[in-house]
């Protein structure tokens, strides 16, 4: 019991954010309900981001009726590679990545064969609402596939790695890279087994690393060191994340960004309830940083100013903790 209390005290003093506080103090207060559809509906979100001049993966087509599911040719055109996503999906469920087309069948990110009938069935499941919150009928989004930047090739197993930036009241406060593994079937989702690696806000260099809830420093599939890696286009990434605040007006926001080989950083999706594992990946608590933003007397109007302030304040903050960490 005393052990637990001292653990509690230690977590408090290192500024760890818990789910209850995230929900009660930040999401409920800063994320107004009426802006939720903007992030929960990925189609709507994509349009909104484009309006604000933010780069996103191209939308190929939308399937909203069951009948459309079987008319694959209309939906896909001559795209050989694409991603099917439920517009209201959460946690990466229901995302199907197709890398190639072989006559009438397809190849997924695991190099497995997907029969045409399987693909149609998946579309009907998505449209039927299998993956949507609350089970309402949904819309299947077909997006162009992102070709990830070869810089990441040692840090990922199939799939596309992405970057998650927490943006608090417009200030980027913490970031991590999410690296797909064999276990996550190429998906960059921590719940499905992807690895999270903390990223220093100032430099864009990776630090720490988490798989599930436990720390790691080596990619389990490629064997490469995952720390000390310089993420390309970092300043553009942070600035894009900060600008999302103007687009959707959510005070506590998770911005997911991918790096395309040819197109550079693209915003994949926004999340109004971003997870808390980013703290383990960075080996640092979020609360201290959120409090620092709250303590600001003059808030910066301009996204560039916010980024500049945040990178200066939160950059390189990980070192002290890293050296002290007891594991």
């Amino acid at each position: 019991m005393t052990g637990m209390l001292s653990l509690l005290g230690g977590m408090r003093s290192s500024g760890v954010l818990g789910l209850n506080r995230r929900n009660g103090e930040y999401i409920l207060k800063l994320n107004r309900r009426k802006f939720f559809p903007l992030v929960d509906d990925k189609v709507l979100c994509k349009k909104k981001l484009q309006q604000h001049g933010l780069a996103v993966p191209e939308l190929i087509s939308i399937a909203s009726f069951m009948q459309q599911a079987s008319r694959l040719e209309e939906l896909l055109g001559d795209h050989r590679e694409f991603v099917i996503k439920p517009a209201h999906g959460s946690g990466g469920d229901g995302i199907l990545v197709i890398k190639d087309r072989k006559s009438d069948n397809f190849v997924d990110s695991d190099n497995g064969l997907v029969l045409r009938a399987d693909l149609v069935h998946h579309l009907t499941n998505v449209i039927g609402g299998l993956y949507s919150l609350g089970g309402q009928p949904d819309v299947a989004m077909i997006e162009s596939l992102v070709h990830f930047d070869p810089a990441f090739s040692n840090l990922t197993y199939q799939g596309v790695p992405d970057l998650r930036v927490i943006v608090y009241r417009g200030y980027p406060v913490m970031a991590m890279a999410r690296l797909p593994t064999h276990q996550s079937h190429g998906k960059a989702n921590l719940h499905q087994g992807a690895i999270g690696v903390g990223v220093d806000l100032n430099s864009g260099v990776t630090v720490g690393g988490v798989s599930g809830n436990s720390p790691v420093s080596v990619h389990p599939d490629t064997g490469s060191e995952i720390t000390g890696f310089q993420i390309p286009h970092w300043s553009r990434i942070v600035s894009m994340a900060a600008r999302c605040y103007e687009a959707v007006e959510l005070g506590y926001l998770g911005v997911d960004i991918v790096l395309d080989r040819d197109l550079g950083p693209l915003i994949l999706e926004l999340n109004a309830r971003p997870g808390l594992n980013i703290q383990i990946a960075n080996r640092n608590g979020l609360r201290t940083r959120l409090d620092a933003v709250d303590r600001l007397e003059v808030s910066h109007r301009n996204p560039e100013e916010r980024v500049e302030w945040a990178c200066r304040t939160f950059g390189d903050a990980r070192t002290d903790l890293l050296n002290q960490a007891p594991w």
Partner: peptide, 23 residues
Amino acid sequence: LGRYTGFRLTELFRFRQLARPKA
């Protein structure tokens, strides 16, 4: 309880590596 914003019991385990010994 709806206003309880403290840690959950399982979070003590989940974030245990982040706990910093009190200065």
